[in-house]
Amino acid sequence: MSDHEPEDPNDDLGDLEATTAVLDALGPSLRDRAVWSEPPASLGDSIVAAIAAERVTSPAPPATADLDVQRGRRRPARWLGAVAAAALVLAIGAGVVLTREGDEQPGEQLAITGTDLAPDASATAVVDDTGAGVAIRLDLRGLEPAPEGQYYQGWLRNAEGELVSIGTFHMRDGDATITLWAGVEVKDYPTLTVTLQTEDEGTGSSGQVVLRGSLTDA
């Protein structure tokens, strides 16, 4: 940026040089798309609504709350539960809340996001480690119905890339909440993916990942 032209006759060379020096130093930021991008227009309303929903269950923020609530440390049980989860589902449209039966450990909120194959898709997952297995409830948004002859399949993946199928679905009635089941521990298989599969092409992953996210902070 070198074509700044002073219009003010009171400007002196020092002012101009100082202005140019500051702005040139910040040029990378001034050229950064992030500086000029706008968040979704409705997001402010969603945030206000989500906080209002939390305010219903907890009129004032708990004094013990701190920034570590998102990092898996203990927080008051009243911050858990359906209302908070509902607020997040309402406003975020994506994320993961981990809960365990009989255990008030706080949840970790993680994004399950659409890939380039399904950029408008997102999901909120609630992981419930039951006595029979791990139930993974997915609240799915924006995922297109699977075409005839195709279906979606959920997978958990470990660090070595081994996959465990957790069920199939088709989404042909629009946005939906589904429950998938895993017989393996989420801590060992922390990565959730959803692939688009084609009938009669075998039971392995197609590799066409439409959603993915991590279920742990490990």
Partner: peptide
């Protein structure tokens, strides 16, 4: 802007914006 400069994905940045405000409000005490 901070979120987008890090995650480089608009949908992900929107999620970060949301979670930032929720966490800020929860921690505001």
């Amino acid at each position: 802007t901070v979120a987008l400069s890090i995650v480089r994905d608009q949908a992900q940045a929107a999620d970060v914006l949301q979670s930032t405000f929720l966490n800020a409000w929860r921690a505001s005490a």
